[in-house]
Amino acid sequence: MNYTLLANQYRDNLLNDVIPFWLKNSADPENGGFLTCLDREGKVFDTDKFVWLQFREIWCFSMLYNKVEQKQEWLDFAVQGAEFMKKHGSDAEGNFYFSMTRQGEPLIQPYNIFSDCFAAMAFAQLFKATGNQEYGDLAVRTFNNILSKRDNPKGKWLKSYPGTRELQGFSLPMILCNLVLELGDLLDNDLTESTIDHGLNQVMEVFYQKDLGIILENVRLDGSFSDTFDGRLVNPGHGLESMWFVMDIAERRSDPGLIRRAVDITINILEYGWDKEFGGILYFMDVKGKPPQQLEWDQKLWWVHMETLISLLKGYYHTHDQRCWDWFEKVHKYTWEHFPDPEHGEWFGYLNRRGEVLLPLKGGKWKGCFHVPRGLYQCWKTLERIAEKNQEPRTKNQE
């Protein structure tokens, strides 16, 4: 297996296809920020601005500037987005809205803490790129705001009736495991370590079900199982994504045992979520095999497959577990045969169960400039590390 050729495939798709697509089509020179609702050809079909997608794009171009090449075009693109969000993105208390008009007028209240999570990521990465202390301060302030809301992320916008069926969700502890590493030296080391400890415990001991080998999306406040729609819900993509976060933490802490656990969980979830009939990974499942509440349960989504590829490659790099490579080849083949659009660039996001394009959009309310470029970057760099381990020669483009 030529790992270097594979690395080049991911690198070239990132730098010659996906990033140029967003640079060309998502700019809003009149108002600032980004237009993310793009059809197959990259034409804008809606001008609402979804806050977490704005910050994801800021993060993406800042990250590329920091880690790939210091292209002024990338940095300028990120900075203008950040300045737009500084001006329009949050309420007086610093809580970031969910969506805004093209001009920056708030549309939907800050009910979703994930706007804050990606704001902290974006400002931290932009601080590294610019040295502008204001961005660093915004990242830390937003991170502390997230921690203050950790036990009640939706606050006054929580829809459920208090005290009847109180559940805790997997998404926030999962994201915090990655977010705390993104902020790096901006945080006090004790805060970093305590946040990691809490996140690891939640992911690996509370939401991970040892008897099933998979991760649930929701559990009761005491960690017990809730035999309800929400309690039975499994999102294989979330579990698979979280495992590469855990592997990065384990590498930071030099904990091979934790890496091994993460690899085993990755394989278990993938075997559970893989569609045996049509291929690809199912979006939602019911842990008891009952009809899922989500009507889109059988769709195949771009981000699920991309995050899976990252976890498999990191698992293979760290452990050389053949299961990781065998599954990587299988998921890689499915992904590259179904999601990239060779005619107009970028990737399709939504396939039906048979793997046919369901929606031809390249960006919308949920899909933006994030999972595809982040995943391509992570796979590219991890394949390079695997190649180095196997003493493959580097190409000119990699030197």
Rank of each mutant, 00 (worst) to 15 (best):
M1L: 07
N2H: 04
R11Q: 14
N13F: 09
P20F: 12
F21N: 12
L35W: 05
L35H: 08
T36Y: 07
K43R: 14
K49V: 06
F50C: 06
Q54K: 12
Q54T: 09
F55E: 14
I58W: 03
Q80C: 09
K87I: 08
S90W: 08
E93T: 14
E93S: 15
G94H: 00
Y97L: 00
M100N: 05
Q103T: 12
E105P: 08
E105A: 15
E105Q: 14
L107M: 12
Y111C: 11
D116H: 09
F123P: 03
A124C: 12
Q125W: 06
F127N: 14
N132S: 10
Q133L: 10
V140Q: 09
T142D: 10
N145V: 13
K149N: 15
D151F: 15
K156L: 03
S160C: 03
L167I: 09
L167A: 07
F170G: 13
S171L: 03
I175Y: 07
E182F: 06
D185I: 11
T192W: 04
E193W: 11
G199C: 14
V203H: 01
V206W: 15
I214N: 10
I214S: 00
S226W: 03
S226N: 14
T228M: 00
F229P: 10
D230R: 09
D230E: 15
G231N: 07
L233G: 01
L233I: 08
G237S: 03
G237P: 01
G239D: 07
S242Y: 01
W244D: 00
V246P: 03
M247R: 07
S254M: 05
D255K: 02
G257H: 11
I259Y: 09
R261N: 13
I265S: 09
Y272V: 04
I281W: 04
Y283M: 09
Q299W: 02
Q299M: 11
V304P: 14
H305N: 05
M306S: 15
W325F: 13
E343G: 06
V357K: 04
G364I: 01
P373T: 09
G375P: 05
L376I: 04
C379T: 13
E384Q: 14
K389R: 10
P393V: 12
T395A: 13
